[in-house]
Design a protein around this nucleic acid. Structure first.
Lengths: 237, 237
DNA sequence: CATTTGTGTTAAGGTAAGGTTAAACCTAAA
DNA sequence: TTTAGGTTTAACCTTACCTTAACACAAATG
């Protein structure tokens, strides 16, 4: 069987604990890259594709949350598990806002960690059947390249998109002609759902509408209280 | 009062703790059904649709795991959170095996629970993009798309429907040519049955009749004191 | 057949959601 | 430090939705 092992980035400054954990995960068929601090962790993250990150919160130079934020800027999807020394409430909350998938209090049971990892990987696998690695879309007479973040009209000059513009348009395109729930965009892109993020999203919808104006067969419709719909009319000739 | 509250089944035998937790969740805009033991929990589960189950592990008659198993047989998807008195490893593992989404050790911080609930609900919302087809109805020469909330006549320009219009028409369509009891619509859509909601419903019936006027073979009849009937005449040629 | 109760319909008014623009704010890079 | 790009917050306006009121008519009831 050709099954590729899952790759885990482990960032943990305590050398003993880190090594033990790395070995334990390795024994359980994960490929582990072990970084000893936040700096190193970020360097290694950039150099490879990981299926999961396990970050210690308390670290010198760069703590786990800061690292997580940097990681999120590069990749909005990798699952992140935080290791915290104690059950600090604020820490926990902060973690969730960065898009943490779970957190564990040290010391923890290694088998529990394994189960969590499994659960997360599984969820990931289920989630991303639909919206997996799709970065190029045809939207009427536009081409959206979501990886390079540009939008081109009729093969002309590509227009640069900001990260948020890009992600939002991509989400809409993934749900082309279908409902893209407000909540989905808010949780996926803004990672928080409140009055302000909601208004912020509306601002971005307005921006996108402006971008898309050149093609009259493309429009973003609102479904009151539900979300938005990117409609592409295939005009018959 | 637009967004439908999420429904939580809480099964917890400790009366004090259970009540406090129920009130806390209620305060945070969840609809909570509280059962005092496994038996009752399962009965209530069968009678309603829940978005999440929170189960105490240690309970008389029927423990949380057994209950979870029964719940899983009925529904493979509802998220389940376990409450365990202590962090027994066996419990945790067993929980994951039954398909738990998370577990919490009592006593726990209520805000942490809230965050977990939110996270799980979000995940759920993301997941269920797949199941679509039970939203489309053919009503004479009309097409009703209940998910995107529009009504189209003869494949022309889709007409937007408001949430209430949409739900009401959908209920009528589900009972096509049959009685759709007043009470049903009032409890399902208005979640309250009194003079005013009843009059409000009549207003919506009037609106729907206007929408449906273009097709003379479609009409909404009143059954005095009982409800309404969406009649679709299949004209013989 | 008179009165009560239920339904048909339209319009007014309140509230919440969404649209738009600009200013304020942040943060990484110069 | 300043600057520039990106994002959020604020302000103000428009639209969508829902309820309520009002008045008319129909159906049941005794």
């Amino acid at each position: 069987m050709e099954e590729q092992n899952k790759k885990i980035l482990l960032v943990e400054d305590d050398p003993n604990f880190g090594t033990v954990l790395r070995d334990y995960l390795t024994m359980n068929d994960y490929d582990v890259v072990h970084a000893k601090n936040g700096m190193e962790g970020f360097e290694k993250f950039k150099k490879d594709d990981f299926d999961l990150c396990i970050l210690d919160v308390m670290m010198p130079y760069k703590d786990g949350f800061t690292l997580a934020k940097e990681i999120r800027e590069k990749n909005t999807d990798v699952p992140i598990i935080f290791l915290t020394a104690k059950a600090m409430k604020e820490d926990v909350l902060k973690g969730y806002k960065v898009g943490a998938d779970d957190y564990l209090n040290k010391p923890f049971d290694s088998e529990v960690l394994l189960m969590k990892i499994k659960a997360i990987m599984q969820r990931k696998a289920t989630d991303s059947i639909a919206d997996s690695k799709q970065f190029e879309f045809k939207i009427g007479r536009f081409d959206l390249n979501s990886k390079l973040r540009f939008l081109r009209f009729d093969g002309g000059e590509p227009e640069k998109l900001s990260p948020k513009e890009n992600e939002l348009l991509r989400l809409l395109a993934l749900h082309e002609n279908d409902l893209m729930p407000r909540e989905l965009a808010l949780t996926k892109i803004w990672r928080d759902d409140n009055y302000f993020t909601s208004r912020s999203m509306d601002v971005y919808i307005a921006k996108l509408r402006k971008y898309l104006k050149p093609d009259p067969n493309v429009e973003i419709l609102n479904i009151h209280g539900e979300g938005f719909r990117l409609v592409i009319n295939n005009k018959e000739e």
